[in-house]
Design a protein around this nucleic acid. Sequence first.
DNA 1: TATTGTTATACTCTATAACTATA
DNA 2: TATAGTTATAGAGTATAACAATA
Lengths: 164, 164
Amino acid sequence: MPRLRMPRQFSPARSADTPAVDEVDTSFLESLLGYNARRAALAVIEVFLERMAPYELKPVDFSVMSLITHNPGITSRQLCTALGILPPNLVGMVNALEKRELIARRPHPRDGRAMGLHLTGTGQKLMRDAEKTAAALEADVATRLSASELRTLIALLKKVYQAE
Amino acid sequence: MPRLRMPRQFSPARSADTPAVDEVDTSFLESLLGYNARRAALAVIEVFLERMAPYELKPVDFSVMSLITHNPGITSRQLCTALGILPPNLVGMVNALEKRELIARRPHPRDGRAMGLHLTGTGQKLMRDAEKTAAALEADVATRLSASELRTLIALLKKVYQAE
DNA sequence: TATTGTTATACTCTATAACTATA
DNA sequence: TATAGTTATAGAGTATAACAATA
């Protein structure tokens, strides 16, 4: 009978059972596209947040403003579809941008339910600078990557998500 | 005097002032690395969520489990550092995985404050299947990309975030 | 004094249901 | 009946402060 053995909770596990980890092996995770894509996205967004702080634009705000810039009269619905945002979550952003007098709502010419979104003069001025900053950020990342590597990277990323 | 003009609120804006957008132009955003990286990450994570649903592992849970798999005895602190998670936010995940009896806490051999994390038998069996599924997911993405494109993509993504 | 793990908590992001007005 | 915009609200995800036990 094994009665003489110590009860398990008092039996210190042998060191083979409780190894310590000195250096963390992340090689399996690093072989996965999703892991690398997420880490890279977070790294770029971190720099983006710093550089865009003067304009008080977070990445999604910038995306919204940029689409309005290049698509004057775009509707909320179109913004949601293009950016993968749910309508209830866009309302607050658009309200905030309108309150800052960066954009203005105008009635849609053909659909009485919809409102077309337009930049104000202030909004246009801000976006000229903000888009320059965004483009400069790309140039800075291109110091980690060569210009052609950056082009390749973006092309491959598009292949991943546009194949949906 | 311009008194005869309609008050602005009753004056329908001319169509030149309120254009409608038929097709949304996203070309500027698509030129930005951050935008593309985020979209690609979201696309891969979406598939990941579907495929990992049978194991009830979200991406972060999988990352935690995978690091424990390849680093038996890893501490919470090491997990947080490796994955960019804040300690308070890891507690709930580890508790949940322990409650599911996928992992077990054992005292750290050299540091009385820390606990080493280890897979249980159940956890090992689950992770054998889950990591196979994760690798198969890569192969599926490789139908959108060639094998060499996938390797290039991952290498370039690493360059972006490891240069931090 | 510094660090590990933890609690409590707040803030942001994302998701669902339901309403209104127009189509 | 369906759609655009909105409200309210719930659930994740992420953030800081502070504490006990140990280094």
